[in-house]
Amino acid sequence: MKLKEIKRDKNGLISGGSVDYIFNEDGFIDWRKMIKVEHLVPNLQKTSERDVTKLKDTELIILIAGIKELAQVRGYTDVRYDVTSPSKDYVIASCSIKFTPNYETEGREVTFSAIGDAGPHNTHGFGQAFLGPMAENRAFVRCVRNFLKINIVANDELEKMTFVKPFSPQAASSPVEEIDTQPSPVALLKRVMSEKKVTWAKVKKRLEDEEYEKADSISCVEQIPKAKIFELIERLKKIKT
């Protein structure tokens, strides 16, 4: 596969025709219309309509993949997080993004910031075990969508995240079907183990060395109690690779 070099013109826009920019009447980029339909899902708490092209912005949810794509198209050089934890079950994250110059900012580099928080009061289920990442994601999506003037709530900002099948014209007439694509604790532990190159044998040995009371009866990841899985995930994430 041949790598494609991304180049921008004098207006700060990606050149070469790979991006179809949509402009409003004032000549500025309509970033809302730049969101692809596959990155939008219906807000099931507000509508039963399946076709996202028929919904108002207040009835839609944007997925984080759509936010990341918009940020890449817009262009940025730096993303910084400032994360604090006032208490053991509450995390606040500030995200600052340095956006590259374009004609919308009169050729100037602009830094924009936003805040996201996470705690038992505004998260649900599995998200309560990962308050730090939840707060970071919320700060990031708010920073991007507020800077680009997008008034669609992001999935990560919701207390209970929504998981529905992606929209397709063929399924538009079908009933809305909610699906659970949220990773299980076991799946997340396996993913982190893979990322950190930690084998099951090493995890098993560590449990035995620490004299974990159930170590002798555990023969696979699936048999580890959920509370212990959450602890292992947090510990593995701190390993530098």
Rank of each mutant, 00 (worst) to 15 (best):
D117K: 10
K214Y: 14
W200M: 03
I67E: 08
L189Q: 06
A227R: 12
D78E: 15
R108H: 09
T100L: 12
G75E: 04
E104T: 12
K98E: 14
T105E: 02
R50W: 05
K190H: 07
C143W: 05
I97S: 04
R235I: 13
V141N: 04
Y21P: 00
S174W: 07
D57F: 04
I152H: 02
K204M: 07
L158S: 04
D9F: 06
V141W: 01
E231M: 10
Q223S: 11
F147G: 01
L40T: 08
F163I: 03
I61S: 00
F99V: 09
K33D: 12
G17Q: 07
M34E: 05
L148W: 05
T77C: 03
P42M: 03
Y90H: 15
E213C: 03
D78N: 15
N102D: 15
G17K: 08
F126A: 06
E177D: 10
E38S: 08
L3E: 11
I64V: 14
T199G: 14
M134K: 13
N122M: 04
V153G: 02
A154E: 08
V144D: 02
T123E: 07
Q128V: 04
L188M: 15
D82G: 10
E106T: 12
T162P: 00
V153D: 06
S15H: 05
P185K: 05
I229T: 14
E177V: 15
P183Q: 07
K7D: 04
K190G: 07
I61Q: 00
T105W: 01
D216V: 12
H124N: 13
V186M: 09
G17F: 11
E109S: 14
R108Q: 13
V41N: 03
E59V: 11
G27S: 05
E5A: 10
E177H: 09
S15E: 15
D180N: 15
F130K: 07
T162F: 00
K238Y: 00
T84E: 12
E59F: 12
A65R: 09
A71I: 01
P225D: 05
E213K: 11
S174M: 14
I22R: 09
C143P: 03
I92F: 02
F112M: 03
L148Y: 07
L189S: 05
M193C: 10
K7Q: 12
F23L: 09
K205L: 14
D78S: 13
E159G: 13
Q182Y: 11
A135H: 08
Y21S: 02
A129W: 07
Q72G: 05
L70R: 08
S174Q: 15
S217W: 08
S113G: 00
D9N: 15
F140G: 01
K56E: 14
L232E: 11
E177C: 06
K226I: 13
V110A: 00
E5R: 09
E109T: 15
E38T: 13
N146T: 13
R8D: 02
W31P: 01
A139P: 10
T105M: 00
K56W: 04
S15M: 10
K196E: 01
L189H: 06
D209F: 01
K160G: 07
A227D: 15
L13E: 07
G107P: 10
R80F: 09
K33M: 14
E59T: 12
D26G: 00
